[in-house]
Design a protein around this nucleic acid. Structure first.
Length: 618
DNA sequence: TGGGTGCATGGGG
DNA sequence: TCCCCATGCACCC
């Protein structure tokens, strides 16, 4: 089907890449050519194409120009309670401020795990999700937003936009997403089904990202099953994470005060859904396949939990985690195994905050035995204990070697602790590290590897990436190996930390990148000899040249093909030619018959396809 | 003497 | 500056 750029002033029919624009009133998204789509992604669409149109207003607060009434800027502004409009950042900060005084939690919250949240006594900042209607969240807007988004489609935000979004999405590492301190608490499965867990709301968190501000990334990380970390603790109503009732008040006086009231920027409520109720209506057909760092549902010490311990788990994996349709899986935390953890000593150092939040309280160094099931349902008993350490404690699980060996884990792999409710059964899943080559990887049937989570023995080979043939970007994002989230594993030498987002962006191999490097136009090389080879040495750094395709005829003759940036036609070039980043037909000095865009294509459709095939093979 | 245990140390956030 | 935590290491069996 022929596409046409929906930008009225463009209406291009060909482009190097079609992009998604705003959500249409009906289903789907506006189709934009590469340039227009990029402008849209970079939030400068209206500034670029609608400058002469009416409807421009200024943000009441910061004065930023806003193109009101235009669908392309629909999500970039909001109406202020006081009248007028504000850019989304200002509106958000205003709204959040209005949220701050919201209190908290009543005592009549059902005292049942998974259905309540509690307030921090003396924590006036805590608020409950139930109050969301009362604190000015605009559900209508959420619904609107949700219509325009594909919650399961991270490709909605092509990587190319990351740099352009005020550095927001691209720069904020997922793991750095801070818990929504001072915000809504958690775990209202019932309510989830009524509101937040509805498909609309579950999408809304992703929709937030459309706004292109840093907070969105925080929300993005919540996914359709986003959790809020802020279950207040240590209140009479708080429910221990385990049915056994591991309630201890030792954290009560240790809640870091700094975390209250610092974060005030969420305009939309986080879906207060800390757990996945398998088989619930909510989840049907909307299992997220995006690996998401989920703020744990609750825990005594949750205020201390660092995002790096948030379990990263797809909804699908959650579903795999339990075969019991009535079970609720509560991801608790995860930890990348250090060399010590995976070593022969058999001690797995637990993050203190996690241990105190999710494992039973222990007052003696000897601790107590903890029964944890592995992914195959095999039950292991570890000694959960601590060592005194600098007036603090260092929590460890002892006796993990057999289990770790059984799972074939090694340093760098990740273990994920979850809990199945009801029952409070602890489950230990794992995710292999990117550089982990072992049996499981080799067993992977679809060729994907690493960064995968395994929870269910029966589905051990049902990998996260398996069986998906579309939504390439999404797939890529899932299959991208997890970056190391902790310090260097097993080595103190410095190494480049490649974050997941970076990895997604880095679609070129080194060799491919070399192919694209061109001397800068002004550069004059100095020829130097290195081991009898001539090298051109440039003072100027290289620039990226236009990517071309090389083909070889059966005769052995090589050809180079380049696509015109203007008309998108492919032109044949001498193989030795290096093109600048921007190249059009008029720059075609080598074929006077095809030095204009109006000149017909040299290749018919079939040949073009063949060309692409070749380019993919090469 | 070797492995296990408990604590100390120090880098890094 | 404090605290966490990876790991070193001394001590014990």
């Amino acid at each position: 089907m022929d596409k046409i750029c929906m930008n009225e002033v463009c209406q291009a029919t060909t482009t190097v890449e079609w992009k998604k624009g705003w959500g249409l009133k009906a289903d789907g998204f506006a189709t934009l050519c590469y340039n227009c789509g990029t402008a849209y992604e970079n939030l400068v669409y209206c500034e670029t194409f609608h400058l002469k149109e009416s409807g421009w207003r200024e943000c009441r607060l910061c004065g930023k120009r806003i193109h009101c009434g235009c669908i392309a800027s629909k999500y970039l502004h909001d109406y202020l309670d006081s009248g007028g409009v504000g850019c989304v950042s200002c509106a958000k900060s205003l709204e959040t401020r209005s949220i701050r005084p919201i209190q908290v939690m009543s005592d009549d919250i059902p005292n049942e795990f998974g259905k309540l949240t509690t307030n921090n006594i003396g924590d006036p900042q805590s608020s409950v999700v139930e109050n969301m209607d009362g604190i000015g969240f605009d559900k209508g807007k959420l619904i609107q937003l949700s219509k325009t988004m594909e919650a399961k489609d991270p490709s909605y935000y092509p990587q190319t936009q990351k740099a352009g979004r005020n550095g927001s999405i691209g720069q904020t590492k997922q793991e750095e997403i801070k818990p929504p301190i001072g915000e809504s608490s958690i775990c209202f499965p019932n309510q989830v089904q009524q509101s937040v867990g509805s498909p609309i709301f579950s999408k809304s968190d992703t929709s937030i990202a459309r706004e292109g501000v840093k907070d969105m990334n925080e929300s993005l990380a919540q996914s359709s099953l986003g959790f809020s970390l802020n279950t207040p603790l240590d209140t009479p109503n708080s429910v221990p994470p385990f049915s056994g009732g591991f309630v201890e008040r030792r954290e009560q006086n240790k809640v870091p005060p700094f975390q209250q009231g610092q974060r005030t920027r969420h305009i939309f409520p986080k879906p207060p859904k800390p757990c996945l109720t398998i088989g619930s209506e909510v989840n049907k057909g909307m299992i997220s396949q995006v690996r998401v760092a989920r703020p744990p549902a609750e825990g005594r010490g949750r205020n201390q939990l660092l995002p790096r311990y948030w379990p990263r788990i797809t909804d699908q994996e959650l579903q795999q985690l339990s075969g019991d349709l009535n079970s609720t899986i509560v991801p608790l935390f995860e930890k990348v195994l250090s060399a010590s953890d995976a070593g022969r000593i058999g001690r797995l150092v637990l993050p203190k905050a996690c241990a105190e939040a999710y494992f039973p309280p222990i007052s003696h160094s000897e601790g107590l035995p903890l029964r944890i099931q592995d992914i195959k349902g095999k039950e292991w008993t570890f000694q959960f204990r601590f060592w005194p350490n600098n007036n603090s404690r260092m929590y460890v699980l002892e006796g993990v070697t057999p289990c770790i060996q059984n799972m074939q884990l090694q340093a760098g792999d990740t273990v994920i602790f979850s809990r199945i409710d009801p029952g409070g059964q602890l489950v230990m899943g794992f995710r292999k590290a990117s550089n982990s080559v072992d049996m499981e990887d080799s067993q992977t049937s679809n060729g994907t590897h690493s960064g995968e989570t395994s929870f269910n023995g029966a589905n051990e080979n049902q990998h996260t990436c398996g069986g998906r043939t579309n939504e390439d970007t999404l797939q890529r994002s899932i299959c991208i190996p997890e970056k190391k989230r902790t310090r260097n594993i097993g080595s103190k030498s410095k190494r480049l930390l490649m974050h997941t987002e970076d990895a997604i962006e880095l679609k070129l191999t080194w060799e491919e990148a070399q192919e694209l490097l061109r001397p800068s136009s002004s550069a004059k090389p100095t020829v130097v000899m290195v081991e009898d080879h001539e090298f051109e040495e440039y003072d100027e750094p290289p620039v990226f040249g236009k990517r071309t395709i090389f083909t070889a005829r059966s005769s052995g003759e090589q050809e180079q093909w380049a696509q015109c940036d203007s008309c998108s036609k492919w032109r044949k070039l001498p193989v030795e030619v290096l093109l600048p980043p921007q190249w059009t037909c008029t720059d075609n000095l080598w074929d006077s018959s095809r030095c204009l865009c109006s000149a017909p294509d040299e290749l018919n459709l079939k040949e073009l396809e063949s060309l692409f095939r070749v380019s993919k093979v090469l």
